[in-house]
Amino acid sequence: MFKFIARRLLETIPVLFIIITGSFFLMHAAPGGPFDAERRVTPEIQRNLEAHYGLNQPLHKQYTDYLARLIFHGDLGPSFKYANRTVNELIAESLPVSLQLGLWGILIAVVIGVSAGIIASLRPNTATDYIPMTLSMAGVCLPTFVLGPLLVLVFAMRLRWFNPSGWDEPSDYVLPSLTLGIYYAAYLARLTRGGMLEILSQDYIRTARAKGASETRVVLRHALRGGLLPVVSFLGPALAGIISGSFVVETIFQIPGLGRYFVTAAFNRDYTMVLGTVIFFAVLIIVFNLLVDVVQVWLNPRLRFD
């Protein structure tokens, strides 16, 4: 187990290095300096600005400086657009909102998705299977950026149950979390159904039934544990998806989270902010994937020999 974790950690280093280096040079090669969109400034001011942000240094020097500050201080540098703000500050400010949104989204996905999957798997190829599975197919195909505006249209603009945007009171959390969660609920429902169907046909389930265990007990105690394995392995990629989903959801509902900052930064070509956020997301996803792998190996000892 220890060896496995050590090996996975060692593998992570080159990945992170590639991401940082690749994004750094891509952003620095991207045309259109960060100050192009502003009013034309005099050459002196331009030079001073460049000196202030270290842009007058040779590229390899900028790169090693950036890397050194990042590794030793965790410093992602100043934002080009928001004067006097650092990327670290902007992330620290907006991340809690995104975390809150993401957690609600995952909660909805797991509760709705897993229960729908179990119900569908109990009587395969009947109405209780087809209806949730067709709905989930629709959920997988209905993109967040269509579903979100539709939910706003119906529940906020027509029925007036919720505010169409914002993130101030608890009722504001409902529509964004649903928009974010429904896709994963649909996906999880399919995964859970597949996993449960496989487990329910195993010998030990028959044994449990033969011993007279109640159907509820067979499903919830015996089958669910094994049937949820694919769900755990799905959680790794789900985080990456929740992050990209947050870009859309935070844009639709005007939620002041990190996703919206990232999209705005990409739109405004705030290169340092884009670079910093990419690195932050990459580290987050990679660390999370590592955790998921460890949990999986822990749940399923057969993987240890791989």
């Binding site: 593998e11 992570t12 080159p14 990945v15 590639i18 991401i19 994004s23 891509l26 952003m27 090669a29 991207a30 045309p31 259109g32 990456a240 998806g241 992050i243 990209s244 870009f247 990232f262 999209v263 990409a266 070509r269 290169y271 884009v274 956020t277 990419v278 997301f281 990459a282 996803i285 990679i286 994937n289």
Partner: peptide
């Protein structure tokens, strides 16, 4: 495997900042 571990959508947005740009086309 290594490329697989990259966060895909984020990488795509990065690519779009680079490629979807009139100056790159110029």
């Amino acid at each position: 495997d290594i490329i697989y571990a990259l966060p895909f959508t984020i990488f795509v947005i990065l690519l779009s900042v680079f490629f979807n740009n009139d100056q790159t086309r110029d």
